[in-house]
C-alpha cells in the first residue's frame, strides 16, 4: 500500500512535525500513534527500500552478464573460423590471411615467450625492491621509492611503446640483444642475427610494466608477515638475510605466487607495447633475440586491414588469449584468496 509521500507520513505519525513541539514542562500524556498504523504509512518507504535493493542486485549481476555476453558473442563470431580450421587453428604455424590460412601457434608462442621473459626479469627485481622497502629501507626513503615505482603503473602502455621504440631500443635493447647473441650465440635461444625488435625487446618492456604490479602486491605480502616471526628468527641468532630467507620468504610464498601470476596475466594481455617492440614476424623462432609476434599484438596491428574472415580469425585469436589469461588469473586469485582465508 502506498500512502502519500514521506513528509506526510511523518508529520502525521512521528510526533516530530513542526507543530507538535513539546516543552519540557509538558510530559507526554498523549498516547503515541499505533505502530501498525505508522507501518502502513511507511509502505512507500518500504517499496523504495526494496527498489533500492533490487537496483543494487541488478547492477551487481550486470558484471556477470557482461562477462558471459562477452564470451558468447566473441566465440560465436569466431565459430566459422574455429570450425573451418579445426584444431589446426591453434596448432598451425602458418598465418596467411591472404590465402585464408589461419594458424595461430606463432602468436601463442610469442605471447608466452614474451610474458615469461617479462616475469623472469620482473620477479627478482620486484622482490628485491619489496624486500628492500619492507625490511631494509630507512623510513624516510620508503615513501619516495615506493611512490616512484608506483608511478610506473600509471604510465599508459602506448607511452611505454613509444619510449621503448625510440629510447630503449637504441639505448639498451639493440646493444643488449647483440651482446647476448655474440656471447651466448652457441645457445639456440640467443642465436644470431640479433635485433632489439624481438621477443627479448618486448619482454624487457613488459617487465618494466609489470614491476609495479608485482612489487606492490609483494610489499603487501611481506608486510603481512608478523613481526613475531622476524623477532623469533633474530632471537635464534640469524643475520638479516637469514631472517628474510627463513622467516619472511616461506611465509609469503603463496602470496608471491599469486602476485607473480597477476603480473603474468597482465603481461599476456598487454597489447600496444608488444605490438611496437616484438618485431611483428608471424613465425616461431627458438632464438629470443629474433622477431616474433604475440596474440594481442596481431589483433591490434592487423585489425584495420583485415577482411571479414580475417576479422573472425582475429576474434578467434582474442578468444584463445582470453581463455589463457582467464585461467592464469583465476589461478592467481585462488592463490591470493587462499592466503587471505588463512589469515
Amino acid at each position: 500500500m502506498i500512502h502519500g509521500v514521506r513528509g506526510d507520513e511523518i508529520s502525521a505519525g512521528g510526533g516530530i512535525g513542526g507543530g507538535s513541539v513539546r516543552s519540557p514542562a509538558d510530559p507526554r500524556d498523549e498516547r503515541p500513534p499505533s505502530l501498525s498504523a505508522l507501518a502502513r504509512r511507511r509502505g512507500f518507504g518500504r517499496a523504495l527500500d526494496r527498489l533500492f535493493g533490487w537496483t543494487a542486485a541488478v547492477s551487481g549481476t550486470l558484471v556477470l552478464l557482461i562477462l558471459a555476453y562477452m564470451v558468447l558473442t566473441t566465440t560465436n563470431t569466431a565459430l566459422p573460423v574455429f570450425t573451418s580450421e579445426g584444431i589446426s587453428f591453434v596448432t598451425g604455424t602458418e598465418w596467411l590471411p591472404s590465402r585464408g590460412v589461419y594458424g595461430i601457434l606463432p602468436f601463442i608462442y610469442g605471447t608466452l615467450v614474451t610474458s615469461i621473459i617479462a616475469v623472469v626479469i620482473a620477479v627478482p627485481i620486484s622482490l628485491g625492491v619489496s624486500l628492500y622497502l619492507t625490511e631494509l629501507a630507512p623510513s624516510w626513503i620508503k615513501g619516495p621509492i615506493a611512490y616512484a615505482v608506483d608511478l610506473l603503473a600509471a604510465v599508459p602502455s602506448v607511452v611505454y611503446g613509444l619510449w621503448g621504440v625510440f629510447v630503449l631500443l637504441p639505448l639498451f635493447l639493440q646493444p643488449a640483444a647483440e651482446a647476448l647473441s655474440s656471447v651466448f650465440g652457441f645457445l639456440p635461444i640467443f642465436k644470431a642475427p640479433a635485433t632489439g625488435l624481438s621477443y627479448f625487446g618486448a619482454g624487457v618492456v613488459l617487465a618494466i610494466m609489470i614491476i609495479p604490479i608485482i612489487s606492490a602486491l609483494a610489499r603487501e605480502v611481506f608486510r603481512a608477515v608478523p613481526d613475531d616471526d622476524r623477532l623469533a628468527a633474530y632471537a635464534l641468532g640469524a643475520t638479516r638475510w637469514e631472517m628474510i630467507w627463513e622467516a619472511v620468504i616461506p611465509r609469503s610464498r603463496p602470496g608471491l605466487v599469486g602476485a607473480t601470476m597477476l603480473g603474468l596475466g597482465r603481461a599476456l594481455g598487454e597489447t600496444i607495447a608488444v605490438a611496437l617492440l616484438v618485431g611483428s614476424r608471424p613465425t616461431i623462432s627458438a632464438s629470443i633475440v629474433q622477431p616474433g609476434y604475440s596474440m594481442a599484438a596481431v589483433i591490434a596491428n592487423q585489425f584495420p586491414e583485415a577482411d571479414a574472415t580475417g576479422i573472425r580469425a582475429l576474434v578467434g585469436v582474442g578468444v584463445v588469449l582470453f581463455a589463457i589469461t582467464i585461467v592464469i588469473n583465476m589461478a592467481a586469485r585462488l592463490f591470493v584468496w587462499r592466503l587471505v582465508a588463512e589469515r
Binding site: G14, P32, S34, L35, S36, L38, A39, R40, R42, G45, R46
Partner: peptide
C-alpha cells in the same frame, strides 16, 4: 502493541 507483529516495520519501531 507487539513490535514483532506482522504489521510492524522495524524501521517504524526504531523511530519511536
Amino acid at each position: 502493541e507487539d513490535i514483532y507483529g506482522p504489521q510492524v516495520d522495524p524501521v517504524t519501531v526504531r523511530r519511536r
